Simulated assay, not measured.
Amino acid sequence: MEDWIDEPIVDPIVSELDRQKIISMPVLLHRSSELSSRTRRFFTVSGSIAGVIGAFLAGVAIQSDSQPAAFVSVLAFIIAGLFVNTGRPSLTTRLQHLYGDCYIIPADLDDNALGLIRRARKAIESVSTSRVNRLGLLDDIANDVVLPEKLWDIARLLRAQVALRAEQDEAMSEVVTPELAAVIAPQREALDRSITSVTKQVVELEDYANRVQEADAALRAHELLKSNDKYRDLLAQTDDAQGLQNLTEHVNVLESALAKNLRDAIDAGQTLATPGDIAAV
């Protein structure tokens, strides 16, 4: 996926079945404009009336064998269906009613928040697709439980920050009196501290992803050591004793590096979870 925010972010507590329902709805990528309750009621009532007219005309058509009446009754039923469907709440609204605030979509965020979300999702994707993760060499709790929770926490905080930032921008667009400035200043400071904290969490994810990539590189180098026998044979045929010794020393260094890189990646993943997160698991 090229754009890491194309898919809605879903609260990990949502079941996998419901999560798939949410992310498979393209309409969620944008907040659709919802009709007012009064307008929806108008369409619903009008559709019901059209349905009653259609039923009446259908009865007339049956009794009198009137083709015009039959045609108009069908038309009335079609109009009734369209009006009733228009009067229903939108799919986005129905999903919101069903799942509440359990998902976040691009329209919930501004450009700054989207940038951080892209970075977080890219880091998590990098970890998930790494070979050391696929081989089960990393901490399963950190990758399967902590990372989805961390992404959701970041997205949830960013959504709240966006709403508060919009509220402050609206307030600052008015005449800024000393009283207004006195209220906004500490609020803006609190918001800035929150943004700094979330940015730090994203950086921690990126640091973990970098450690995992280093472990991947070390694993690849370790696998290439299997080819050393071929090089030993080649050096033995050329009577290069020093070359053989260098290969042996290099094996020891790479094996130690692989073990260290794996430990570093696992440690970095564990720091993403608080003691409470691990205890809950």
Rank of each mutant, 00 (worst) to 15 (best):
residue 121 R to G: 07
residue 131 R to H: 06
residue 32 S to L: 15
residue 124 I to N: 01
residue 111 D to I: 13
residue 60 V to R: 06
residue 72 V to Q: 02
residue 89 P to N: 00
residue 131 R to V: 14
residue 28 L to K: 05
residue 47 G to I: 04
residue 88 R to M: 12
residue 97 H to W: 09
residue 124 I to K: 03
residue 47 G to A: 01
residue 72 V to M: 11
residue 115 G to T: 04
residue 125 E to R: 13
residue 56 F to I: 15
residue 29 L to T: 13
residue 89 P to C: 00
residue 132 V to P: 07
residue 69 A to L: 06
residue 81 G to H: 06
residue 45 V to G: 00
residue 132 V to G: 10
residue 144 D to F: 01
residue 97 H to P: 09
residue 136 G to Q: 09
residue 100 G to Y: 00
residue 139 D to C: 08
residue 154 I to W: 03
residue 137 L to Q: 11
residue 62 I to C: 06
residue 155 A to E: 08
residue 155 A to G: 14
residue 66 S to P: 08
residue 56 F to D: 04
residue 57 L to T: 01
residue 33 S to R: 15
residue 155 A to C: 12
residue 109 L to D: 01
residue 68 P to A: 00
residue 136 G to K: 06
residue 93 T to F: 05
residue 124 I to H: 02
residue 48 S to G: 02
residue 53 I to S: 09
residue 72 V to T: 14
residue 123 A to S: 12
residue 75 L to P: 03
residue 51 G to T: 00
residue 96 Q to P: 05
residue 59 G to S: 14
residue 91 L to S: 06
residue 20 Q to W: 01
residue 150 K to R: 14
residue 126 S to T: 14
residue 94 R to P: 06
residue 94 R to C: 09
residue 42 F to I: 12
residue 151 L to N: 02
residue 76 A to H: 03
residue 86 T to V: 02
residue 85 N to Y: 13
residue 103 Y to Q: 02
residue 48 S to Q: 13
residue 59 G to E: 11
residue 152 W to T: 09
residue 116 L to K: 01
residue 127 V to F: 00
residue 98 L to V: 09
residue 83 F to M: 12
residue 79 I to Q: 04
residue 26 P to R: 02
residue 94 R to M: 12
residue 155 A to S: 15
residue 104 I to D: 08
residue 43 F to P: 09
residue 134 R to I: 03
residue 53 I to F: 11
residue 97 H to E: 11
residue 83 F to R: 07
residue 42 F to K: 10
residue 64 S to R: 14
residue 155 A to L: 05
residue 147 L to D: 08
residue 41 R to E: 15
residue 93 T to W: 00
residue 88 R to Q: 12
residue 18 D to H: 10
residue 104 I to R: 07
residue 107 A to V: 00
residue 65 D to H: 11
residue 144 D to I: 01
residue 145 V to S: 05
residue 22 I to D: 02
residue 60 V to A: 09
residue 100 G to A: 00
residue 154 I to T: 03
residue 64 S to W: 10
